[in-house]
């Protein structure tokens, strides 16, 4: 998924989900997703363009989940969000595996993403420099040195 929540602003929430091709029992799937994202269900007839940033992101996730994917790749899902909304986004991501989908997140906010992850990989100039469970990485001094940022090495880049 791209960095900004790409919804079709002029289509309704419902139509944004209907546009996905090749979903078996589409109506039922939409009902399931509306159960999982009650905010979306509430605005199902509203134009996606009128949703808040967080709701748009929920809609983008819901649309990505439509065809029962086994894995989602999220490219910096928090990059376009206001700082206050970032925690909400990570909470949303934390909940995604309950749909039976594996998540691969590429993120600049290393600490926060490791906090919702099972495993992490830290890249340094291309190759994987470190990998391990999220807890290990959070505790690892080298990881902190490389990426997590301590004093002079800020995590934002």
């Amino acid at each position: 998924m791209p960095q900004t929540a790409n919804v079709f602003p002029s289509l309704s929430v419902m139509e944004n989900l209907l546009v996905v091709v090749g979903v078996k029992r589409q109506k039922q799937r939409i009902a399931e997703l509306f159960d999982a994202f009650p905010q979306l269900a509430e605005h199902r007839r509203a134009r996606a363009g009128s949703l808040s940033g967080g709701e748009r992101q929920q809609l983008a996730f819901a649309r990505a989940l439509m065809p029962h994917p086994r894995m989602l790749v999220l490219d910096e899902p928090t990059a376009a969000l206001a700082p206050r909304k970032v925690a909400d986004a990570f909470a949303l991501i934390r909940g995604l595996p309950s749909f039976g989908v594996s998540i691969l997140v590429v993120e600049q906010r290393a600490r926060q993403s490791l906090a919702v992850s099972d495993r992490g990989f830290i890249l340094d100039g291309g190759p994987v420099a470190l990998s391990g469970t999220a807890q290990e990485l959070l505790a690892d001094a080298r990881a902190a040195e490389l990426y997590l940022g301590r004093g002079d090495r800020a995590s934002a880049d």
Binding site: F8, S10, E15, L18, V20, V21
Partner: peptide, 23 residues
């Protein structure tokens, strides 16, 4: 109609529409 929905979606954003599996 379904095709009509695809037309409206594609009028807004052809690339994302293609990503949803629309031919």
């Amino acid at each position: 109609s379904r095709v009509g929905l695809y037309v409206r979606a594609s009028s807004v954003d052809p690339v994302t529409t293609g990503m949803q599996g629309v031919d």
